[in-house]
Amino acid sequence: MAVDEGLKIELGKQGVFVTTIEELYNWGRRNSVWPMQFGLACCAIEMIATTMARYDLARFGAEVFRPSPRQADLMIISGTVTKKMAPQVVRLYNQMAEPRYVIAMGACAISGGPFKQGYNVLKGIDRYIPVDVHIPGCPPRPEALIQAFMTLQKKIDEQPLTGAGRPRHLDAEAQGEFPVPEQGAHDLEPTSNKGVWTVPVVIR
């Protein structure tokens, strides 16, 4: 139930704060997103810079990078995901507690980047796990990561607690397990998880 905006402002002037549970709940969630301490390649250096004093990601409530997936809410895929590393990344994502979010940082993580046609690099981590925010760049600047983080906060803020758009941890039906790909004779098997990713249709 939404509060009338005008009434809310008027009450605020009188020193009365009105809110909804949804607003309060999401306010708490979006300001305490704890990322996982996890870097894959050169983008991780920018991620580290983002957490340091000059850019200070802690301003957004993400000051603690957790060394265990059990305590983390956000996975920043910072760098090239090789086919050798992909099963480990997917397994770590599975081991995170709900609600969990993913930021794919940099050209490699979102598409394979300069190594897209190589034999050893995954063409984007969104083949196996759902990605919330993609950041282009090689590597993206810390400002871009902060922008992505704010986008994620906005997304969390807009999630209703009931209905179709509710976050996955409140939905008993939502998929909880994402299969870990096997390392086959030539490629990862399967090459993508069903329902997570479909081959893009090229419109010419």
Binding site: S68, P69, R70, P87, Q88, V89, R91, L92, N94, Q95, E98, A172, A174, G176, E177, V180
Partner: peptide
Amino acid sequence: KPNAIKNSIYECG
């Protein structure tokens, strides 16, 4: 929503 992967021992993936 527990599953086999989630409940397994954490060892850096």
